[in-house]
């Protein structure tokens, strides 16, 4: 039971952290893309702005755990 709790919260964290790492990297890229030396190159070679990962409302519900 406790082990399961730990596994569940760890899995939730892992998903959240993976998403966070992606978004941090994407934000970093987006900022660099708009700062001086890079902004010229980015415009010329068509580097697009990176989209961030958003969480859909439906995915935010906590999973139901029940022990019969």
């Amino acid at each position: 039971m406790l082990a399961l709790q730990e596994e569940l919260s760890s899995t939730e964290n892992k998903i959240a952290f993976a998403r966070q790492a992606f978004n941090d990297a994407a934000t970093d890229y987006n900022i660099r893309r708009e700062v001086f030396p890079a902004v010229k190159v980015a415009g010329m070679f068509g580097f697009k702005e990176a989209a961030l990962l958003e969480t859909a409302e439906t995915e935010r519900a906590a999973p139901k755990v029940s022990f019969q």
Binding site: L2, Q5, L8, S9, T11, E12, I15, A16, R19, Q20, N23, D24, T27, L52, L53, E54, T55, E59, R60, A61, A62, P63
Partner: peptide, 28 residues
């Protein structure tokens, strides 16, 4: 036993939150 924690705590006051960070646990 305190149960699943309600997602990540917001960062320092005054920092704009980065978009896309989950507020509540994501289902497995």
């Amino acid at each position: 036993l305190e149960g699943p924690r309600p997602g990540r705590v917001p960062p320092f006051a005054g920092i704009p939150r980065l978009p896309g960070l989950p507020q509540v646990p994501v289902p497995v």
